[in-house]
Design a protein around this nucleic acid. Structure first.
Lengths: 366, 366
DNA sequence: CGCATTACGTAATACGCATTAACGAGCGTC
DNA sequence: GACGCTCGTTAATGCGTATTACGTAATGCG
């Protein structure tokens, strides 16, 4: 196991160039002790009394710079300090091949905010491809290398996550997740955003609206449904038993006949939730297409979220934008606060209403 | 700085429940030494001689399981003298807001291959000022925290990179980069791919072809031009002085008149290089559009690379696909080999010809 | 039965850094 | 000049694990 070790034994740095410099080498170059180097390089705000003279300080800094010294994150962490690393852990590949279901938009915000706060990011891989930590309980525990960790994706192993939280390891979950006591999370305000969309449709004159959702118990779905119902109520509209269409496979179950039946009953607007696959929205679109109904004219459609990337060419759907970069940034802020030992809380992030082109006033009833 | 440490001082585990168990505790429960626990829990394939008896092995495993022992990654990496981290350094944000010019496709391959090889990724951002090194020239030295580092982007500071290479720090540059002695890199074979496109056009019957390129001296551009000229020669076609149209702003300089003139001279096909902005291709497309020439019919077009994301709706261009994920994967493989001390070399990655819809046989000359 | 082997374990140590008790040197003070 | 005192620095130690150099008991062999 030692074959790759460039440094032979205990001698600080004989061969020199092949290995990263250690504090000991910086110390030798600066003519001080390793402890002094540590003191100089560890920004201690509460420097009570014990300070290093400006002269040695500069000497050490110069030596460190010229050697290109960088602290070893593992050692730093082991010695009970921080290493300026925030972990990002996702349970599917972070950069999936399929365009759908990508964490990219979140990462835009995560990277930006992390940089602003002075953190680098560690991307823990292998969660899906079974590489590094294959499976097993260790897969998740690798994140302890970082000061804290951000979790993406809805299907997080409860037990492992719970363990991290209980151990006091700073963890933030991206997406509402209340079933786990003490788990910090950030989320978007789907309830309010959906309410706003419904309110808008009602304002256009729609009286009967149907929500198309998938058969998933994720909080994100539940929130939209709640916002939908609240929106109906606020607009003084009835929410009959048929107002919510829930299906495990909307693209199969949402038939043109079904659609025609609704329209025949007086339904003039449909809203679909956004999910990884966009199945609800796709199902709605194709059903409308097959029935030959004119979209803004005969039926209004709204998407509770952003359209999948491969539908970028389609007309812009009415609905709301999920501010994913802001969500990512908020998550990082929260995580950084936890790492710093603060008792922070991030409020729900608001979604932005998107007028779009798929909704308009309903056609006058015959 | 010690506030978060649950374990008071040297006692192995007095308070018990607040902290994760260590090997020492497992050892105590199993009635063996810490070293034995380590030996049992560290899968050593080449267990030459030194073996633990099956009985104690099971006892230790049982103890570990019952305590919920999980190894501390920081300690593990410290003891192993490497940290299983590969750096990714880009000089613009790794996740840019603009869709164009994104490293995303590369990262798909990087993440996947890193996972397969058992590495985690550290993302460094050029602008971030975190960690030990302040901003400025030291920014680059932060990458030493990883076992090796991948560099993206054409505008890498030469001096700093040189320093890393000279120090023997494993570095791989994504994209051909030969001007720096000893710098490892991986690249796509633009020469061959371009040659193939030209050969294909010649096969269709085209006799006069013009290359539209931007005014950039990047290797990627030079390679395409070289492949273009070689392709012409191989097909027995003349490459007059007007065969290459080089412009700093093709969208401005590539006027409809210009295009008409070429067509009048007998040019029947145009190829454009791909760049971050896609300016050459955009210029070509808009000029053709304005002149009202029918694309596969009257002129053939080819794109030496992938179209920008915002042109996804357009008909698929003839040309070649740059296998970005494979490039990323190849870079990671090379980097991993360097980290392991091997003297590896990755060949150029081949691009894949894309038939597309924008090229066809030339219309018979009048 | 004596000695060489082998099989199993363990003590000791290193890994790189942070932290803290202790130490030496300057410097007044009476 | 012995004493306290502050300031700057260092020696020593611990963090949790991997590894190596040794023991010790069991076994093999003539």
């Amino acid at each position: 196991m030692e074959e790759h070790r460039k440094r032979p034994g205990r001698t600080p740095a004989p061969a020199g160039r092949t290995s990263r410099p250690r504090q000991a080498e910086v110390a030798r170059l600066a003519g001080v002790s390793q402890a002094t180097v540590s003191l100089v390089l560890s920004p201690k705000p509460d420097a009570k009394g014990r300070v290093i003279s400006e002269e040695t300080r500069l000497r050490v800094l110069e030596a460190a710079r010229s050697l290109g010294y960088v602290p070893d994150p593992a050692a730093r962490r082991l010695a009970a300090a921080r290493n300026n690393l925030l972990g990002v852990f996702s349970f599917t590949a972070t950069f999936p091949t399929e365009v759908q279901h990508s964490y990219y938009p979140f990462l835009v915000g995560v990277e930006c905010e992390a940089a602003a706060l002075g953190y680098d990011l560690v991307l823990f891989t292998g969660s899906s491809s079974g590489g590094a930590g294959a499976a097993g309980p260790d897969a998740l525990s690798r994140v302890r290398l970082a000061d804290g960790c951000l979790f993406l994706g809805r299907h997080t192993p409860r037990a492992e996550l719970k363990r991290l939280v209980e151990d006091g390891f700073p963890v933030v979950h991206l997406g509402r997740r209340e079933e786990l006591e003490g788990l910090a999370w950030v989320g978007a305000d789907y309830v309010e955003a959906t309410r706003e969309v419904i309110s808008n449709l009602a304002g256009l004159g729609h009286r009967r609206i149907v929500l198309v959702r998938e058969d998933d118990d994720a909080p994100a779905s539940a929130d939209r449904q709640r916002g939908f119902l609240e929106g109906l109520e606020a607009a003084g509209l009835a929410s009959g038993p048929t107002a919510v269409f829930r299906s495990a496979d909307p693209q199969r179950d949402l038939t043109p006949e079904r659609l025609r039946a609704w329209v025949g009953e007086g339904v003039t607007a449909f809203v679909a939730e956004e999910t990884d696959t966009g199945a609800a929205w796709r199902g709605l679109l194709s059903a409308v297409g097959e029935t030959g109904l004119d979209c803004p004219g005969e039926v209004s459609l709204a998407l509770l979220g952003n359209p999948p990337a491969d539908l970028a060419g389609e007309p812009e759907p009415t609905g709301f934008d999920i501010p994913r970069p802001q969500l990512g940034a908020a998550a990082v802020r929260l995580l950084a606060a936890l790492v710093a030992g603060e008792e922070a809380r991030e409020p729900l992030v608001s979604c932005v209403f998107r007028p779009g082109l798929t909704a308009g006033p309903p056609r006058a009833r015959a």
